Simulated scan of single mutants.
Amino acid sequence: MSQRPEEIQHRLRSLDEIGDVVGALRAIASSHASSAETAMQAIAAYAGTVTHALAISIAAAAPHVEPEGPGLLLVVGAAQGFCGGYPEHIEKMAQSTLQPGMGLVVVGARTADMLNAAGLSVLWSDDLPGHPAAIPALASRTTDVLVEQSAHFPGPIRALTGTPHGGHAAVVSRLFPPEPTEGVTSQVPPLMTLPAADLLTGLLQEALFARVAHVMMQGAETEARARVEAMARAQNNLRTRRTEVEQAYQQARQEQMTTEMIELSASRQ
Score class of each variant (00 low, 15 high):
R4P: 00
E6L: 10
I8L: 15
Q9M: 15
H10R: 15
R11P: 00
L12M: 08
S14I: 02
L15F: 04
D16H: 08
D16W: 02
E17F: 05
A24Q: 13
L25A: 11
L25S: 09
R26E: 12
R26D: 01
A27L: 10
A27W: 06
I28Q: 13
A29K: 02
S31H: 07
A33C: 03
S34W: 00
S35C: 00
S35G: 00
A36C: 05
A39E: 05
M40L: 14
M40G: 02
Q41E: 13
A45F: 04
A47Q: 09
G48F: 05
G48N: 09
V50M: 04
V50E: 02
A53V: 00
A53Q: 14
I56G: 04
I56Q: 15
A59V: 00
A60N: 06
H64Y: 15
P67W: 05
L72P: 10
L74P: 03
V75W: 10
V76R: 01
G77Q: 07
Q80H: 11
G81A: 13
G84E: 04
G84H: 05
Y86F: 15
Y86E: 02
Q95H: 07
Q95S: 12
L98Y: 00
L98C: 06
Q99N: 04
M102P: 01
G103K: 09
G103H: 09
V106T: 11
V107T: 08
G108Q: 06
R110A: 04
T111D: 04
A112E: 07
M114T: 11
M114S: 13
L115E: 07
L115P: 09
L115V: 06
N116L: 12
S121E: 15
L123W: 03
W124L: 01
D127S: 13
D127I: 01
D127N: 14
L128W: 08
L128Q: 03
H131P: 00
A133I: 12
A134E: 15
P136G: 12
L138W: 05
A139F: 07
S140N: 09
E148P: 01
Q149V: 05
G155P: 07
A159P: 07
L160C: 07
L160E: 09
G162P: 09
T163Y: 10
T163S: 15
P164C: 03
H165L: 12
G166Q: 10
G167Y: 05
A169H: 13
V172P: 05
P178C: 05
V184F: 07
V184E: 15
T185C: 11
Q187S: 11
V188K: 11
P189Q: 08
P190D: 07
L191G: 01
M192N: 10
P195N: 15
P195L: 12
A196F: 00
L199T: 10
G202V: 08
E206L: 14
A207C: 15
L208N: 10
R211Q: 12
V212E: 06
V215Y: 11
G219S: 03
A220L: 10
E223V: 03
E223N: 03
A224M: 04
R225H: 02
R227W: 05
R227L: 06
A230E: 06
R233W: 04
Q235G: 09
R241H: 09
E244Y: 01
E244N: 04
A248Q: 15
Y249N: 11
Q254M: 12
T258V: 10
M261N: 13
M261H: 11
E263Y: 06
L264A: 15
S267G: 04
